[in-house]
Amino acid sequence: MENIEKKLREEAKRLLEEKRVDALVGFEAGTLPLTATPCFITSPEEADRLVWNAFCSQNLAKYVHDLISQHHNSQKRVKPEDRKKKVVGVVARGCTTRSIVLHLQERQYGRDEVTIIGVPCEGYVDRKALTAALDGADIREGSLTGDRLDILTAEGKKEIPLQDVLADNCRTCRFNNPIIHDVMIGEPAPAMPGAVQEYAEVEEFEKLSTEERWRYFTKEMSKCIRCYACRQACPSCYCPTCFVEQTQPQWVGLGEDATDTQVFQLMRLFHMVGRCVDCGSCVSVCPMGVDLRKFLKKLDKDVFDFFGNRAGVSLDDPPPLSTFKEDDKEDFIYNP
């Protein structure tokens, strides 16, 4: 990792010095132990802030989209010949590049507007799993050595194997190396062993009865406080105005009525058909620990089962919901 970090900084510095990127999105150390936080770098001197470790959780493609679309908006009133191009650099693991592929497929920006610094990934730590492993104790100090987390809490020292607190989406990740990149740092990471059981959890859930599934769905959604962190963190959620915020008509109530929350979540989830890259950002940012992945992974599974498509894994594939094949699944169609 340290080696990767060193190379990453060198590469970032070079890109900024050579003015090949105008801004670079990466991670820097957070203010709390065992955290990393997104950072924005515009000068070569700042490159030394960059880190790459198991605490880098967010999908930075979100910021790539934001920065580029802000730039596009700022250029709207500029005469075509005076328009400036802006290139955003991003430190990207597998899922981040999948989101970028998705953005490119959905024509959000051009390939030449983003410079991808690919990094290998072996999973990131799920903060909530870590808290649970520590039984809620506050982390005072911590370090990661190899596969072992050494943590000091108010109650004392504790060792936790990294594997035990990796995010669920990382354990079963199939695409932990960048799909596309302009520069690759380090060697590709070995495949994640859990990838073969990618859909095991969904399959278990499918076996439950309708009522059991409904109970689980409603229980999970009852935790939601409608802070919209899931939506805001999601690189695929980039509608200029979310349906929740539309007022004419108002599609869904804004209060804490259980059905309103369910409808909000249901709609948002369903907007992810063929568009969820399983980066886990929504799950990691949720303050209440709603099990969103149980539902998103089902969409992923269905799209793969039905149409043989996985979101953002190839620039050549059209998005699954904007294409069709003659022999697409139609056994669900009612035929009296």
């Binding site: 249901l266 058909v273 089902k298 039905f306 069709f324 669900f332």
Partner: peptide, 21 residues
């Protein structure tokens, strides 16, 4: 394309516990 959307919608609603029928 509508067929694709409906296929996933029906499956998803069933999955969260809305009776398939």
């Amino acid at each position: 394309m509508a067929r694709r959307k409906f296929a996933t919608l029906k499956s998803f609603l069933d999955y969260i516990g809305i009776e398939g029928d």
